[in-house]
């Protein structure tokens, strides 16, 4: 057996266990949904509990036959993905305070850099895109984007 297919089976099994755990948690929360009255015989708990049972059974099937999966990225890939997601979340958390243009300019520049632009090109491109999208979705289409630091 090759390393690749062994890795694929391992990641499939881990995913199956995660799904099983999720089905359990979802089912427990589903069974404890509070409600005052139900006008129908099934009630708000019926569907979630049934779905949790089905998912649990399917997860066991998946555990037994994990099938194929792609290779996971190495350390560099993980770093790049975290850089993308981290910057996105950080920019979104300050989105309402800093404003659309500054936070998007930073995010666009970081993504451009991740996709191979040089620092200067990335920064100029980021600022350019942020302004372009602001112009299109703000003044032109009448959208309501956060103003923030720059006051527009």
């Amino acid at each position: 057996m090759t390393d690749t297919s062994r890795n694929a089976r391992l990641s499939g099994r881990i995913a199956a266990l995660a799904l099983l755990a999720f089905a359990l948690v979802y089912g427990l929360f589903g069974a404890r949904i509070e409600y005052a009255f139900a006008s129908d015989p099934i009630g708000p708990r019926g569907f979630p509990v049934a779905l949790a049972l089905v998912l649990a059974l399917l997860a066991l099937w998946y555990l037994a036959r994990p099938g194929e999966a792609e290779e996971w990225p190495g350390r560099a890939g993980l770093g790049a993905a975290l850089a993308f997601l981290g910057t996105s979340v950080a920019c979104l958390l300050v989105f309402d305070h800093a404003g659309f243009v500054p936070s998007m300019a930073v995010l666009m520049a970081v993504i451009a850099r991740l996709f191979g632009a040089g620092w200067i090109t990335a920064i100029l491109g980021g600022i350019g895109q942020a302004l372009l999208w602001w112009l299109l979705f703000g003044p032109l289409l009448g959208g309501n984007l956060p103003k923030g630091l720059l006051g527009f």
Partner: peptide, 16 residues
């Protein structure tokens, strides 16, 4: 368009 323009654009459109 080169990816360093296109992919920030996709992200911006998704957020917007």
């Amino acid at each position: 368009m080169p990816n360093w323009i296109l992919i920030p654009g996709i992200t911006a459109l998704s957020i917007l």
